[in-house]
C-alpha cells in the first residue's frame, strides 16, 4: 500500500480524459497542453505527458500533423480523431456519473 501511488493512479485516470478535453477545443502542440494541465495542477512534471500522448495516439484517439513554426523547428500539433471525439463524449458522461456517485458517498458520511 502506497498512498503516493494511489494518488498518482487517481490523477492518471482523469489525465487522459483531461488531455482529450483540452484537445477538444482545437489542435494544440504539447507545450500548450502542458501549460493548461499545469495551470490546473493536474501534472507536476512534464515528462508524464509524452508517454500518454503516445499511447492515445497509438490507440487511435489522437492524430497529429507537423506544422512549420516561425521561431524554430516544425511543431507537432495533436488533434482528436473521430474515435477520440466519441471516446471523450463517453468519458464525459461517465465522469459526471462518477463525480455524483463519489460526492454522494462522501457526503453520506
Amino acid at each position: 500500500m502506497n498512498i503516493e501511488n494511489t494518488k498518482a493512479q487517481m490523477k492518471k485516470g482523469v489525465l487522459e480524459f483531461c488531455i482529450l478535453s483540452v484537445l477538444s477545443s482545437g489542435d494544440q502542440y504539447p507545450s500548450e497542453i502542458i501549460e493548461k494541465l499545469k495551470d490546473a495542477k493536474l501534472i507536476v512534471v512534464e515528462g508524464t505527458l509524452y508517454p500518454l500522448l503516445m499511447r492515445l495516439k497509438n490507440d487511435g484517439l489522437l492524430s497529429y500533423r507537423w506544422e512549420e513554426s516561425l521561431s524554430g523547428p516544425p511543431r507537432k500539433y495533436y488533434k482528436l480523431t473521430p474515435v477520440g471525439k466519441q471516446y471523450l463524449k463517453e468519458l464525459k458522461t461517465s465522469w459526471n456519473e462518477l463525480v455524483e456517485a463519489v460526492n454522494k458517498t462522501i457526503e453520506k458520511k
Binding site: A8, V45, E46, G47, T48, Y50, P51, L52, M54, R55
Partner: peptide, 17 residues
C-alpha cells in the same frame, strides 16, 4: 526539474501499458 525524473513518468506508461 520541469520535465521530472524518469521514474516519475516512466511508471505511468509502463504500468498502464
Amino acid at each position: 526539474g520541469i520535465m521530472g525524473k524518469p521514474e516519475d513518468f516512466a511508471d505511468d506508461s509502463e504500468r498502464k501499458g
